[in-house]
Simulated scan of single mutants.
Amino acid sequence: MNQLPVPDGVHFSAHLPLVWHGVWQQSAFEATRYLAVLAEFESTSDERSHAQDALHAKLDLMLLWTAKNASHNLPAAKEVVIGLETISWRDVAALPVGAHGALAISLSQVLPFSLQLPAEIVACVGADQAYTVTARLLLKEEALRDWFERTVFRNHRHIVHAERGAQT
């Protein structure tokens, strides 16, 4: 099977729930807040006091329960390559180049959420009874773009560290 296109620069590959929607239905504020919470949720901080740790533990548990209840609505997982400006995946259906809509994607198995990112289909190539689709992200809101880029950098960094650890 053909490899997914890999963008120049910072990116990561993963197996994540993803589906294309013809209409962007999520506010940029909600998407931005989720990315900020995901970053905090995945971080470890030695600077917290015991009281802050206890509060964060309660908030984390509430977030996990909320995410668990919402995770039954997630789309099927697919192999994806996520860059700073594009997302590529393999799908059984062709999508028209130039179509505008949203990618619904869940970036975390631990804290699942169907994040919607506005995008435009820029490539759709058929091969091996499937299509390789590439969408260019249309993140016009600065805060959303900033938190998305932080997410890509964080995931890229985790993969690089894991690969270095495996080589030693």
Rank of each mutant, 00 (worst) to 15 (best):
Glu40Lys: 12
Glu163Leu: 14
Phe113Cys: 07
Ala102Ile: 01
Val19Asn: 05
Gln167Thr: 10
Pro5Leu: 04
Gln3His: 14
Pro96Ala: 09
Asp60Trp: 08
Glu30Cys: 05
Arg164Cys: 08
Ala104Gln: 10
Leu63Glu: 11
Lys68Tyr: 11
Ala31His: 04
Ser114Gly: 11
Ser71Thr: 05
Arg145His: 12
Leu84His: 09
Ile105Ser: 00
Thr44Arg: 13
Val122His: 00
Ala36Asn: 09
Trp24Gln: 14
Glu120Pro: 03
Gln26Phe: 07
Val125Asn: 08
Gly83Tyr: 05
Ile121Glu: 02
Gln167Cys: 09
Ala14Ile: 03
Met62Asp: 12
Gly22Arg: 05
Leu59Ile: 15
Ser27Trp: 01
Gln116Leu: 06
Leu59Gln: 11
Leu115Ala: 04
Val23Trp: 02
His156Glu: 06
Leu107Phe: 08
Val110Glu: 15
Val125Gly: 01
Gln116Met: 12
Glu142Arg: 12
Phe153Ile: 10
Asp46Phe: 10
Pro7Met: 07
Ser49Lys: 05
Gln26Met: 13
Ala93Asn: 14
Leu35Tyr: 02
Trp20Phe: 12
Thr134His: 02
Asp8Leu: 10
Leu111Tyr: 06
Thr134Val: 12
Val133Met: 02
Thr151Tyr: 01
Asp46Glu: 13
Leu74Val: 07
Thr134Arg: 02
Pro75Tyr: 09
Gly165Met: 14
Leu38Asp: 01
Phe29Leu: 14
His56Pro: 00
Leu144Glu: 03
Glu47Ile: 05
Pro5Gly: 05
Glu163Ala: 15
Lys58Trp: 10
Ile105Met: 03
Asp146Leu: 12
Glu149Trp: 12
Ala77Pro: 10
Leu4Ala: 04
Trp147Ser: 02
Cys124His: 03
Ile87Ser: 02
His11Cys: 06
Ala94Gln: 10
Thr132Gly: 03
Gln109Gly: 13
Leu55Met: 11
Pro75Lys: 08
Lys140Ser: 14
Ser114His: 10
Ala166Arg: 13
Val6Pro: 00
Gly126Ala: 15
Leu137Phe: 08
Asn2Gln: 12
Leu144Met: 06
Arg154Glu: 09
Glu40Met: 11
His15Ala: 10
Ala57Thr: 10
His11Tyr: 07
Val97Lys: 05
Val92Cys: 06
Arg33Cys: 06
Thr86Arg: 02
Arg157Met: 15
Ala162Asp: 10
Leu38Gly: 00
Gln109Ser: 13
Met1Asp: 10
Ser49Trp: 01
Tyr131Cys: 05
His21Gly: 04
His161Gln: 15
Asp46Arg: 13
Ser108Cys: 03
Gln25Asp: 14
Trp65Asn: 14
His100Gly: 03
Pro96Tyr: 00
Ser108Ala: 04
Cys124Val: 02
Thr151Phe: 00
Ile87Phe: 01
Val23Gln: 13
Trp24Cys: 12
Phe29Arg: 12
Val160Asn: 04
Gly101Phe: 00
His11Ser: 03
Pro17Tyr: 07
Val97His: 00
Pro17Lys: 05
Leu144Arg: 01
Ala77Ile: 07
Thr66Leu: 09
Ala99Arg: 01
Ala54Tyr: 06
Arg136Ala: 13
Leu137Gly: 03
Ala127Tyr: 02
Ser108Pro: 02
Thr168Leu: 13
Thr66Phe: 07
Gln3Met: 15
Arg154Pro: 01
His11Val: 00
Ala51Asn: 09
Leu111Cys: 08
His100Lys: 13
Ser71Trp: 04
Asp128Lys: 08
Pro118Leu: 01
Arg48Tyr: 09
Phe153Asp: 04
Leu95Ser: 01
Val125Ile: 12
Asp91Glu: 14
Asp128Phe: 08
